[in-house]
């Protein structure tokens, strides 16, 4: 499998007057296409910071992040926005759907940002909602959907841009057990069938159980990397 994400000597250091905090401390990481990987670790271990760096939402203090061979740490903020739009799918802990748009519109929104034709975007949105089991709720607004359903819409939205990989930051944190299990089953299926790469930041044991690779972070360093 080809390498999608590669970080080398990655540091993120927060400084204040008295001290330095190494949120990410020399991380060397390689993620290949089709992986279903969880980054785990205690709170403050640097999981989310690492995910933000890989997602181009934050810039490293030093080191490089290569996505499909391109060093995104050298991109300007404007180029990063465009990069995120075309290469990365995001799933957030609190769903973050646009409340005034329907499920279908939320999914097609990303494609609209990409400049795709609205008919094509609409068609793909419906297909993606079908894929996440919400074909019959396409015209529902987020407020009419359960937490699990909203997170499924968020998955469909993350997939809409045909990204190279999906970054999911604590995607099950706000879900009950049944919804979390359903969501994980659905993501696992997408990973197996479509070879979509998922990278989770989590301390949810249910995700750890499903993940085929578990990277453990502590104090910003990788202290474990288990391939199941």
């Amino acid at each position: 499998m080809s390498t999608i994400i590669e970080t080398s000597g990655l540091y993120k250091i927060y400084k204040d007057q008295a001290s330095e905090i190494h949120a990410v401390d020399g991380v060397n990481l390689r993620i290949s296409q089709g992986e279903f990987t969880a980054i785990v670790g205690p709170s403050g271990s640097g999981k989310t910071t690492l995910l933000n760096l890989i997602g181009g939402l934050d810039s490293p203090t030093s080191g490089s992040i290569h996505i499909d061979g391109s060093d995104i740490s050298r991109l300007s903020p404007k180029e990063l926005v465009d990069f995120r739009l075309h290469h990365i799918g995001f799933i957030f802990q609190s769903y973050n759907l646009i409340p005034v748009l329907t499920a279908k519109e939320n999914v097609s929104f990303v494609m609209d940002l990409q400049g795709r034709r609205s008919r094509e975007a609409g068609q793909r949105s419906l297909e993606l909602l079908e894929a996440v089991g919400l074909g019959d709720r396409a015209d529902s607004r987020p407020a009419k959907l359960s937490g699990g359903q909203q997170q499924r819409v968020a998955v469909a939205r993350a997939l809409a841009s045909k990204p190279r990989f999906i970054l999911a930051d604590e995607p099950t944190a706000n879900l009950d057990s049944k919804s979390a299990a359903n969501l994980l089953d659905m993501m696992e299926k997408l990973n197996e069938q479509e070879q979509i790469t998922f990278l989770f930041s989590t301390h949810d044991p249910r995700i750890m159980a499903k993940a085929r690779r578990i990277i453990t972070l502590e104090d910003g360093r990788i202290v474990g990397d288990i391939l199941k």
Binding site: G55, L57, V81, D82, L85, F90, F92, I98, L113
Partner: peptide, 16 residues
């Protein structure tokens, strides 16, 4: 603010 941040995260430019 949170929602606008999310829009920026998923690729909506500041100009938009």
């Amino acid at each position: 603010t949170h929602e606008l941040g999310m829009l920026a995260c998923i690729g909506m430019s500041k100009r938009r």
